[in-house]
């Protein structure tokens, strides 16, 4: 009974966060803010939904935990690479004042 309620609450939270992440990438002003909404909120939403299903069905729990671990590893990597690539091809962040983009002056030391 308590597992049932817990699972449903987790799924509801996850689905709401998925929706908020998508709303964020629609409403935010530039690529980097959109990426922030679309990665953090969506990753939390997917994790919460998947774990919630695992709690509702106890025999599925280990496989859903595996999916959650994979999402938690893989989603930030692609987002990081995408942010780096966007900055390299010259997309400016949305700023009220000039000179707030401090990543611009950092010279990236490439490792061997």
């Amino acid at each position: 009974m308590i597992l049932n309620i817990l699972g449903n609450v987790l799924i509801t939270i996850g689905v709401i966060f998925l929706f908020l992440g998508a709303l964020g990438i629609f409403r935010m002003p530039d690529v980097y803010s959109r990426m922030q909404a679309g990665t953090k909120a969506t990753t939390l939403g997917a994790l919460s939904t998947v774990i919630g299903v695992g709690i509702l069905q106890p025999e599925w729990f280990w496989k859903t935990l595996l999916i959650a671990i994979f999402i938690a590893i893989s989603n930030p990597i692609s987002s990081h690479a995408l942010a780096r690539g966007s900055h390299k091809i010259g997309i400016k962040p949305f700023m009220k004042k000039e000179g707030l983009d401090s990543y611009e002056n950092v010279s990236i030391e490439e490792e061997k």
């Binding site: 994979f70 590893i73 893989s74 990597i77 990081h80 690479a81 780096r84 990236i108 490439e110 490792e111 061997k112």
Partner: peptide, 18 residues
Amino acid sequence: LQNASLIVKTSSKIIYPL
């Protein structure tokens, strides 16, 4: 190819056997 950033390199080393 150019090398990828450190984050991409480390995590792909972790995730490739999986």
